[in-house]
Design a protein around this nucleic acid. Sequence first.
DNA 1: TAGATTGTTAATCGATTAACAATC
DNA 2: TAGATTGTTAATCGATTAACAATC
Lengths: 215, 215
Amino acid sequence: MRRIRKELPSTVIRRFTRYMSHLQDVRDSGTQWVSSQEIADALGLTSSTVRQDFSHLDFSGTSRRGYNVRLVCEVLSRILGGDKVWKSAVVGAGNLGTALVLHDEFRGQGFDICCIFDSDRRKVGKTVGSLKVQPMDKMGPLVSTLRVDIGVIAVPPAVAQSVADLLILAGVKGLLNLASTHITVPERIGIAEARIAASLQELSHAIMMKSSLGS
Amino acid sequence: MRRIRKELPSTVIRRFTRYMSHLQDVRDSGTQWVSSQEIADALGLTSSTVRQDFSHLDFSGTSRRGYNVRLVCEVLSRILGGDKVWKSAVVGAGNLGTALVLHDEFRGQGFDICCIFDSDRRKVGKTVGSLKVQPMDKMGPLVSTLRVDIGVIAVPPAVAQSVADLLILAGVKGLLNLASTHITVPERIGIAEARIAASLQELSHAIMMKSSLGS
DNA sequence: TAGATTGTTAATCGATTAACAATC
DNA sequence: TAGATTGTTAATCGATTAACAATC
C-alpha cells in the first residue's frame, strides 16, 4: 500500500479515468499487453502523453511488450479510489437526482447512494429505487449520523451553494456538483463537476464553428 | 451578425459557459455593471484571466465601471449558440436518457429533443414526457428526415461508438457523449462529453488526496 | 542479434498571470 | 482631477510533444 508522493495535475487525473475505462474493456476482451501507442490511438492522444502520464504511477512497462493491462487497471483503480466505498447522498429528487439513484453503475463503482433529499413537499416520501425521499430538514442530521462521504448536488442553481454549505457543515468530504452554477468550498473539501447544460453549450459552439469554417 | 475570426481555445469556451451562467444570475439580480475582479472572485479565477478571455469577444468594457452585464450576457449567449434551436435526439432510454428528455431546462436553452430511441423491446413504445420511445432501426431514417442536429449518446459503453457512427451517417452535426467510453468522430463533427462516472472518480481521488495530505 | 518499446530529458507549445499605459 | 478599471503586452508557469538512450 504505497502512498502517492506528489499531487497529480488534474489533467492527468482526468486522463486516468479514460485510460481506466478503456483498459478495462481491453482487459475484458482478453488482451494482456498493450503499448502506449495503442492506448494513444484508441483515445486520441500521443504515445508520449501516455508514457508521461504512466510515469506518475507505481509500475513499469516492459520493453518490446508494453504494459500489462491487468496491472495498469489495478493501479489506476486504486489511485481513483476504486477499492473504496463512498457513502453518498443525493440532494434534489428531480429528473437527474432520481436517475442517479436508479442508476446501478455507480453502486458497482463504489458509490453507495444511501439517501436522497428534496425540499418539495410533494416529492418527500416518494420512493426512488430502494430509497424514500427525505425532507431537507433531515439532511444535516442524517448526513452526519450516517457519516456520508459525498454529497451530490442536483438542485436548482439558486440553492446549490447553500445546499453545499449545509452538506459541508454536516461533514461530507467531497461534493459532486451537477448544478450549472459555481460552488465555492473550503480547501479541505474535494469537488468535481459534471454539467450537462454546459457541455451542450460547448457542443453548440463547436457545431457553429465547424459549419462556418467548413470547406 | 459578426463572424468569429479565430478558433477559440476550448479552455476559454468552457469558461464562457461559466461566465454566462454567473452573469445571468447577476443580471437577474438587477446589477448593471460588473468588474473583471468581481467575476473572478465569484468564479475562483483571476481578473487577468477574465479580461484576457473577454478580449476574444466583440465588445469593450468601460474604465472605472467594468462590463455591462446585459451586453456580456448577449454576446456570450450568441457565441454559445443561445439564439439557435438545435433539434436533438436522445439514444438510450435508460435512467439518464429519460431524465434528459424530461428535463425542461434544455428545451429552454435551445435544445429541442424531438425523439428518443432504445434497442430494448420492452422500452420501445413507452412514453417519456411527450415522446414515444422508438426502436433503433427507426433511428437512421427518423434522424435524417427530421434533420436532427445533435445526437445524445446515453447508451452502454459497448455500443456507444456504433451508435455514434450511425448518427453521423444519418447526418447529425454534433454529439453529446454521456457514455464513459471514448468516441472517435470525423473532423467535421462536433463533440462534447459529460461523464458523471468519470467525475465521481476524479472526486474520489481528490478526497483521498485531501485526507492524506491533511494537516 | 535486431528491433520495438519504454522511461526520461529537453524542446515546444499553450495557457495563465503580472504589469502597466490608456482611459474614463 | 484622482483613482479605478480596462485592454494588451510581456513574463511565467504548466502541459504536451519530440527525441533518444536504455532495455528486453
